[in-house]
């Protein structure tokens, strides 16, 4: 058949006729003005495509047409199927590419969960296990590496509720490895501070605990037991009982501070409230302290209490507080 060509002059005539029908509703003088405006608007018409560009586009289309099979009509096609067939190839390809990169990103980018200062964060992992991160603690893991084990990296303190699974759940800290199969326990692993250690407190089930650089020196803890790893190559301390109410007090927003130096308490308050606490040289912070709070309301309330006990004053600073010896 001969190529169909839309004739622009006949189109224009038809469009004008349609417009004139539309304008018949308007006042006579307005009809004339509007029709002139219509004609003048023709000057804003974008010039047509250059012939070489069209030839190029047509050649590209001929090529594409050869690789695109036409669909045979099917009698029993549901409207839903018909809509689906309307989805284009290039959109499908783009979607596929986007999904691919999303999957790669999903599998291999480390997931990093951090509890902000001032709040604990509860996270549910893909295996259904849940982790409660204490203020400022960070958990990192790569979903793509969860083949035979479920491995996470922990900095700081967190309470784990691990769902039983054929794959062991492994927590790496800066100096220790904790391996479990399904249990609840708390791990505390702050690499800095007065006591850089990983301590493990088990509230149910069984957990294997080892120094990172000497995996053979394993200690198995059962419900109600705790142990510490002080050095990455030294065996964990032998299991001993612990007070679960005090050890898990942070989960409810409280703080159990037992026989530790004042400086460590200030670090704890810094993490908990996201503030900076400066300690004046006039103040000695090496004295140990035991201080238990079922609920920590504010840093200031904590300082009022601690200073009345330890003999100090505090001043507000733009970022937090400054602790000054009471004698000054």
């Amino acid at each position: 058949m001969t190529p169909p060509r839309p004739s622009s002059s006949s189109d224009a005539a038809a469009a004008l006729a349609e417009l004139q029908a539309l304008l018949r509703r308007e006042a006579a003088d307005e009809q004339e003005e509007l029709e002139r405006a219509w004609h003048l608007a023709g000057h804003a018409q974008t010039p047509p495509l250059e012939a070489p560009e069209l030839a190029e586009a047509v050649a590209a289309f001929e090529k594409a047409l050869q690789t695109t099979p036409e669909q045979r009509p099917r009698a029993s096609r549901s409207p839903v199927r018909r809509r689906r067939s309307f989805k284009g190839r290039w959109m499908a390809l783009a979607t596929l590419a986007a999904l691919g990169s999303l999957l790669a990103w999903f599998l291999f980018t480390p997931v990093r969960l951090t509890a902000p200062a001032g709040a604990t964060t509860v996270a549910t992992l893909t295996d259904g296990s849940s982790v409660t991160l204490n203020h400022g603690a960070t958990l990192q893991y790569r979903r793509g590496l969860w083949g035979r084990t479920r491995t996470v990296m922990l900095t700081g303190e967190a309470y784990f509720d691990v769902k039983p699974d054929s794959r062991p759940f492994i927590i790496e800290t800066f100096n220790a490895t904790v391996e479990v199969l399904g249990t609840t326990f708390s791990v505390r692993a702050w690499p800095e501070g007065d006591r850089p250690e990983t301590s493990l407190m088990v509230t149910s089930g069984q957990v294997r605990f080892a120094p990172r650089l000497a995996q053979a020196k394993t200690v198995t803890l059962t419900s109600g037991q705790m142990s510490r790893v002080l050095e990455a190559a030294t065996a964990p301390s032998s299991p001993e009982p612990f007070n679960a109410d005090l050890a898990m007090l942070w989960l409810d927003g409280g703080l159990a501070f037992i026989e530790r130096p004042l400086s460590a308490l200030f670090v704890e308050l810094e993490r908990r409230f996201g503030i900076a606490i400066e300690v004046d040289s006039s103040m000695s912070t090496s004295d140990t302290l035991t201080w238990i709070q079922p609920r920590l309301q504010s840093a200031e309330a904590a300082l009022i209490d601690v200073c009345s006990h330890s003999g100090c004053r505090y001043e507000q600073t733009p970022t937090g507080f400054r602790i000054v010896g009471a004698s000054e």
Binding site: M1, T2, P3, P4, R5, P6, S7, L49, L54, A57, V58, F61, E62, L65, Q66
Partner: peptide, 27 residues
């Protein structure tokens, strides 16, 4: 010919060459 292909009645009858012509006209 334009009248014929301006409605979908004759669309199914168009072969590849016919579609290229349609493309050339409307591209």
């Amino acid at each position: 010919t334009l009248e014929q292909t301006s409605s979908t009645e004759t669309l199914a009858a168009l072969d590849e060459a016919g579609f290229v012509a349609l493309y050339t006209a409307y591209y």
